[in-house]
């Protein structure tokens, strides 16, 4: 077993690199889209600082539709769009496009939920102190929910590991791709098990690092 793994060292390292690249890239871009969308979902909601119920409902629908399309179908359906944005439809960079489109609505909901945890009384207090809406968003909403946002970030990154494995099946490379090519098509079960082990370690590492950071910066835990 060890021999097979060692002989595939180069392939596995490259796969791990591709997975990390896809997950990191798509996490960053899905937050660039999803964070403002989540803030908008929250602030345009009932009683929000930018209450606008028609806009809120429209955004809610977009997010729900985005979240209900199975990711594997999204990858295929988005191929023309991916080509337009990334210049190609195959490879880790191209895979980031559907990964971002798939994860952004998910991120938006996570962000919305984190913001909902902020005590509305604190928002009112800030209003009474003469805060503008932008100041409320930046300094109260995002500042107070930072630990929760970081926990959401780890959930997103871990979900994207799973998604990136699926993207592997359509030529994106990465650990998921190796698991299928070697473990399934070539019956090398040990390679599949090893890639699973790598993925498990990766998930644990992300969970631990982000969880630790979130607890560390959460001032409510001080006593």
């Amino acid at each position: 077993m060890l021999e097979t793994i060692l002989s595939l060292k180069g392939v596995l390292l490259e796969g791990l690199g591709a997975t990390l690249y896809m997950v990191a890239g798509s996490t960053i871009f899905s937050y660039l889209l999803g964070l403002p969308l989540g803030v908008l979902l929250y602030t345009t909601g009932k009683g929000g600082i930018h209450e606008n119920l028609p806009l809120n409902r429209a955004l809610g629908w977009i997010v729900n539709i985005g979240r209900s399309i199975p990711f594997i179908i999204l990858i295929i359906a988005l191929i023309p769009f991916t080509r337009l944005v990334a210049g190609k439809a195959i490879g880790p960079t191209a895979a980031i496009v559907p990964l971002v489109i798939g994860a952004a609505p998910f991120v938006a909901r996570l962000v919305e939920q984190s913001l909902q945890e902020v005590d509305t009384g604190v928002i009112e207090a800030a209003k009474c102190m003469g805060a503008t809406r932008l100041q409320i968003i930046l300094q109260v909403l995002l500042g107070e929910s930072l630990p929760s946002l970081i926990r959401g970030l780890s959930i997103t990154a871990i979900t994207l590991i799973g998604y990136s494995a699926m993207a592997g099946t359509v030529g994106a490379g990465g650990l998921g791709d190796i698991a299928i090519r070697y473990g399934y098509y070539r019956y090398q079960t040990e390679v599949m098990l090893f890639t699973i082990l790598l993925l498990v370690l990766l998930v644990c590492l992300i969970q631990f690092l982000f969880g630790f950071t979130a607890n560390r910066i959460d001032k409510r835990n001080r006593s």
Binding site: A125, C128, M129, G130, I217
Partner: peptide, 29 residues
């Protein structure tokens, strides 16, 4: 609003900020 200070029943302090930052908050705004 800056001419009227409000002390709320539930205090409504920023839980992620220190006492110093909380008191400085309206000034920063």
């Amino acid at each position: 609003r800056r001419r009227m200070g409000v002390v709320f029943q539930g205090y409504h302090l920023l839980m992620q900020k220190s006492v110093r930052e909380n008191v400085a908050f309206p000034l920063r705004l």
